[in-house]
């Protein structure tokens, strides 16, 4: 029973990630893309945890922990990069 639950959840998370990628590609402004990326990182985290419980391996959870803590650092870098590029465009 619990295997069925975890299996269903993995498929649901995969479909959610696909929808997030659609939003990421469609998004008219860069803010939309960042919103989609934010949700995508949460979905990835949940997928890692469910996968770790499903395969009964602790290694996946260690990866999820590090991804959780340092995930938004990459995010901050992307936001900073886009802002810099935007301000350069205004000056030129």
């Amino acid at each position: 029973m619990s295997m069925i639950l975890l299996h269903t959840m993995q498929w649901f998370l995969l479909v959610s990630a696909g929808i997030c990628v659609i939003r990421l590609l469609l998004g008219p402004t860069s803010a939309d893309r960042l919103v989609a990326l934010n949700i995508l990182s949460g979905v990835t985290l949940a997928f890692l945890v469910v996968r770790g419980v499903w395969e009964k391996r602790v290694l996946y959870l260690d990866v999820a922990l590090v991804y959780d803590i340092f995930g938004f650092l990459g995010f901050l870098a992307i936001a900073r990069f886009l802002k810099d590029r935007m301000s350069d465009g205004e000056e030129q």
Binding site: A31, L34, N38, L45, V49, F72
Partner: peptide, 24 residues
């Protein structure tokens, strides 16, 4: 490990939203 991930997630998820919000 899941409990630790939950506690850190409560800090990191709003921070991510805040970064996007400030950028917007």
């Amino acid at each position: 490990r899941i409990v630790i991930i939950m506690i850190f997630f409560l800090i990191s998820a709003p921070t991510g939203s805040y970064i996007v919000g400030r950028f917007t």
